[in-house]
């Protein structure tokens, strides 16, 4: 089918995933509200499963189109790159809104908070303990992913594998430490605007770390099945961009919420 046309654009086939994905998103939304009101998780679980199955199969299809059918020409890849750039830009603004909320509340704390930040009665995390370790972990993971990238560019399979594997391990370690810190936290999301801004910002960041780790694990599995070469690894590059974005967001979180905010 590749050669039945006279241009290098990718005319995509019909696919069920946009429709099924949209239904999954709507079911998840409805199910989550049902859970909040009726303490009943079935509908939300159905929605989540639908979404997960959709994403797995949608990206499986894209992998097949790119790697096995050769449909990702330079023009198509350029489009994919721009898509990823615009997506990450929108994510940046998503996080800007949380920082806006944080600085709005912390730069001139209201009387109700005791006119101080952190608010009266809030016991905050020591920024020099686990948060500092987490900073080191994410910065190191930035190094290992660059190592993996350069290995792939230089056709070094083994070091590409090792660099990618180390990055995934560091990502999982970060998530584990954040989970531990959430469990140990002396304040909750319901403890004043401090708890609200802290958990919304770090929670969404944690979610993004989990998504980024999943993206990297996908790349690791594709690497193991020899999907990449020195000039065919756009999926890996997108994962690397995403990972750097997550890394930079953490630096801002660490500096403003954990450090300055304490």
């Amino acid at each position: 089918m590749t050669n039945h046309m006279n241009h290098t654009f990718h005319m995509v086939n019909q696919s069920p995933w946009p429709l099924i994905g949209a239904m999954g998103a709507m079911i998840t939304l409805t199910g989550t509200i049902k859970w909040f009101h009726q303490y009943e998780q079935t509908l939300m679980s159905i929605g989540m499963i639908t979404m997960i199955m959709t994403t797995i199969q949608w990206w499986r299809d894209i992998t097949r189109e790119g790697t096995y059918q050769g449909l990702h020409t330079s023009k198509v890849t350029k489009g994919l790159r721009w898509g990823m750039i615009l997506f990450i830009t929108s994510e940046v603004f998503f996080f800007v809104s949380f920082f806006w909320a944080f600085f709005h509340s912390s730069l001139s704390p209201t009387n109700e908070l005791g006119s101080m930040w952190p608010p009266t009665g809030i016991q905050v995390f020591n920024p020099l303990q686990i948060p500092l370790l987490n900073t080191a972990i994410l910065l190191s993971s930035g190094v290992t992913i660059t190592w993996a990238h350069h290995s792939i560019l230089e056709n070094n399979y083994n070091q590409g594998l090792q660099g990618l594997f180390m990055t995934v391990i560091l990502g999982l370690y970060f998530t584990a430490l954040q989970a531990y810190e959430y469990m140990e936290s002396p304040f909750t999301i319901a403890d004043s605007v401090y708890g609200a801004t802290f958990f919304v910002a770090t929670g969404f960041h944690g979610l993004h770390v989990i998504i980024g780790t999943t993206f990297l694990i996908t790349c690791l599995m594709r690497h193991l099945t020899l999907h990449f070469s020195s000039n065919h690894h756009m999926g890996f590059e997108a994962a690397a961009w995403y990972w750097h974005f997550v890394d930079v967001v953490w630096l801002f979180l660490y500096i403003s919420i954990y450090w300055w905010g304490s």
Binding site: T2, N3, T8, G70, L71, T73, N155, S229
Partner: peptide, 19 residues
């Protein structure tokens, strides 16, 4: 079997023609 192949061997279809 577990190392990179030549990029030219990996690509196929239009992408290969472009390369």
């Amino acid at each position: 079997a577990n190392t990179f192949m030549d990029p030219k061997e990996l690509v196929t279809g239009l992408e290969k023609r472009e390369l």
